[in-house]
Simulated scan of single mutants.
Amino acid sequence: MGNKNLQQATIGGGCFWCTEAVFLELKGIEKVVSGYSGGTVPGYPTYREICSGLTGHAEVVQITFDADIISFEEILIIFMLTHDPTTLNKQGADVGTQYRSVIFYHDEQQKATAENVIKEVSKYYDAAIVTEVSPLDVFYKAEDYHQNYYRNNKEQGYCSFVITPKLSKLRSMFSDKLK
């Protein structure tokens, strides 16, 4: 990996397919893995169990990034502006605690940065931001068919109607950050 300053961020903003697609577009992002975190049920959860809403897990992505190219703060700003952080347990038509807006911090510095970013971007929203900020406990990688979902399924309806417009918004707002 050379002299890269690799760090991780774990965030959830609704369906992980959307969040993954956004961050795979950015310079400095080494890897994005879709998965689950924040649940109360022990053991390795399955997608089916997550979708029941009974495990307490959120759909999240774990991002490995080069902090010399893109900072944790920049990642969070992009995250907060590419999903709706004001809707509790809901993103578009996706409803349930598994779709909550959440930042799982890896250390106290990430926690402080997350709280500061939320405070700063809150002035751009009419409603209160409901994004959860919690310590990362365990991250579970989602099933293989969820990885790189958008890139592998661009013609699928959800991708065409939900993810493609989200990527257009990203490209118009953050063109200088794109690969």
Rank of each mutant, 00 (worst) to 15 (best):
G13V: 01
E120L: 09
Q98V: 05
P135C: 06
V95Q: 06
R100Y: 03
N116H: 12
L136E: 08
T113P: 01
S37T: 09
G157Y: 12
Q8S: 14
E115D: 04
G39A: 10
F16I: 05
T113C: 06
Q156D: 07
F72P: 00
T97N: 14
A9R: 01
N153C: 01
T64K: 07
Q8D: 11
N3Q: 15
G13F: 02
F65P: 01
V61I: 10
M173Q: 14
S52W: 11
Y149T: 04
I103G: 01
L136P: 05
T82W: 00
G2Q: 09
K179R: 15
P85F: 01
L81P: 07
K31V: 11
K154Y: 05
L178F: 08
I63P: 00
I70G: 01
N116P: 05
K166M: 09
D176T: 14
T87N: 01
T87S: 08
I29E: 02
Y47R: 10
T86H: 00
G53T: 07
V60M: 04
V60P: 02
K119T: 12
I77K: 07
S172Q: 15
R151V: 14
R151T: 14
R100W: 04
L6M: 10
I77C: 05
R100F: 07
T131H: 01
H106I: 06
E108I: 10
H57K: 07
Y124H: 10
K119R: 13
P85Y: 00
F139T: 10
C15P: 04
G53K: 07
S168E: 15
A93D: 14
Y149I: 06
Q109A: 14
R48Y: 12
V102N: 05
F174S: 06
K119V: 07
P85N: 01
E59F: 09
G38Q: 07
A142R: 06
I63M: 03
F104E: 09
K169M: 11
P165A: 08
V117A: 00
T64W: 03
V102L: 06
H57Q: 08
K111H: 03
P42R: 12
Q147L: 03
G157V: 10
L6S: 06
E73R: 09
E30D: 15
E20A: 14
Y44H: 15
L88D: 03
L24D: 13
K31A: 12
Y99L: 04
S34I: 09
Q109E: 14
T113D: 04
L54P: 12
S71R: 03
P42T: 13
V95P: 04
L76S: 01
L167G: 04
